[in-house]
Amino acid sequence: MRTKLIERLVKQMNNKEFWFCYDLKMGDWIINQGKYPFITKAIHPKSRSVFFLFKKSDRLDLLTGEYKLEKFYKNIV
């Protein structure tokens, strides 16, 4: 019963407002290095994958870009 409710809520969430981050290293980096708050850390009911839920913003876009650049440069050095 609870799983069905969670599934329905996830489907109703507007993906324009929220970002589901399934990369736990990235999520931890955004929270700790970027000092950006997350709404929740949860498990997807069907896939059983852990994710962070963030509210979308320009700052979050900048932080995800910064993380990807940092990860890219670590791989080439």
Rank of each mutant, 00 (worst) to 15 (best):
M1D: 06
M1N: 04
R2V: 03
T3G: 00
K4W: 09
L5Y: 14
I6Y: 12
E7R: 13
E7F: 07
E7W: 05
L9E: 15
V10C: 07
K11V: 14
Q12K: 15
Q12E: 15
M13N: 13
N14R: 14
N14D: 15
N15E: 15
K16W: 12
K16R: 13
F18C: 12
F18A: 12
F18S: 12
F18G: 11
W19V: 09
W19G: 03
F20W: 15
D23R: 10
K25T: 09
K25Y: 07
D28M: 02
D28C: 02
D28Q: 08
D28S: 08
W29D: 03
I31S: 02
I31H: 07
Q33A: 10
Q33R: 12
G34Q: 03
G34W: 00
K35A: 10
K35G: 07
K35F: 09
Y36K: 07
Y36S: 00
Y36Q: 06
Y36C: 01
P37Q: 08
P37L: 11
P37G: 04
P37H: 06
F38W: 08
F38T: 08
T40W: 01
I43P: 02
I43G: 00
H44Q: 10
H44R: 07
P45F: 11
P45C: 08
P45D: 13
P45R: 10
K46M: 10
K46P: 07
S47Q: 14
R48F: 03
S49M: 03
S49F: 02
S49G: 02
V50L: 00
V50H: 09
V50E: 14
V50S: 09
V50P: 03
V50G: 03
F51T: 12
F51W: 09
F51C: 02
F51Y: 15
F54K: 02
K56V: 02
K56F: 01
S57Y: 05
S57G: 09
D58S: 13
D58A: 11
R59G: 03
R59A: 06
D61R: 01
D61A: 04
D61F: 00
D61Q: 01
L62T: 09
L63P: 00
T64A: 00
G65L: 05
E66S: 04
Y67A: 04
K71M: 10
K71G: 03
F72S: 05
F72N: 01
F72M: 15
Y73G: 05
K74F: 13
K74S: 14
N75T: 10
I76L: 15
I76W: 06
V77W: 08
V77F: 14
V77L: 13
V77T: 08
